[in-house]
Amino acid sequence: MMDSPLSTHLAFTLGPVPISTTVLTTWGIMAALAAAAWAVTRRLTMRPGTAQACLELVVETIQGQIHDTMHTASTLFLPLIGTLFLFILAANWSSMVPGIEPPTAKIETDAALALIVFLSVVGFGIQARGLGGYLRSFAYPNLFLVPMNLLEQFTRTFALVVRLFGNVMSGVFIIAILLSLVGLLVPVPLMALELLTGAVQAYIFAVLAMVFISGAIEEKPSDAAQQQEDTAS
């Protein structure tokens, strides 16, 4: 019987705090990302080299996606969305390194990411519309849907968690099973598929985060109609 994909493995204990392998891997990914970013952005020039051009392309693409999806030119969401995308991508692709289990294959990491998205949705919503306005948005289109809207907030966050977790974990799981059965060359197509799935899941996670946030900050149609009536009268 193989290990449960739901359980974590203890790496070592730091005082009273048990440090799991997942956290350890996450630290490694964080260090790698930050170091790479620092190494490239340490000397930025007006005439970019290859590394700087690639980095600028990545940042510009993320900003472009934010602009397309959220219809805002604001760079306020760039750090959150960009980090989510880059971290999930790096975490998903870290399964290619032998002996590394991607942090996103553990439900704790996905839950942490989803929690941050959830809190961001609430935070940006309150920031954009005020506390009253944000709470009133739950009563759209009418008061009877307040429980449904509240429930939707949690279910969609839960779906975010389970989607990412299920995809990455199943991929890792299947590759592990195949490795235990055949071992050589056969898992390669599935690993390639895992690369694609990892990229797509990172993208989808970021897009859904954008959609949730923009849904929280943007005017509901009733508000827009109300405003139009006000301006008309």
């Binding site: 974590t8 996450t26 964080m30 760039l78 750090p79 980090t83 971290f87 942090p103 704790e108």
Partner: peptide, 21 residues
């Protein structure tokens, strides 16, 4: 692990904001 990962992601957001974006 859940709490540590949350903190990790927040730290990473700050790091990338500081060094990348």
């Amino acid at each position: 692990t859940f709490g540590l990962q949350t903190i990790n992601v927040l730290v990473l957001i700050w790091l990338l904001q500081r060094f990348l974006f």
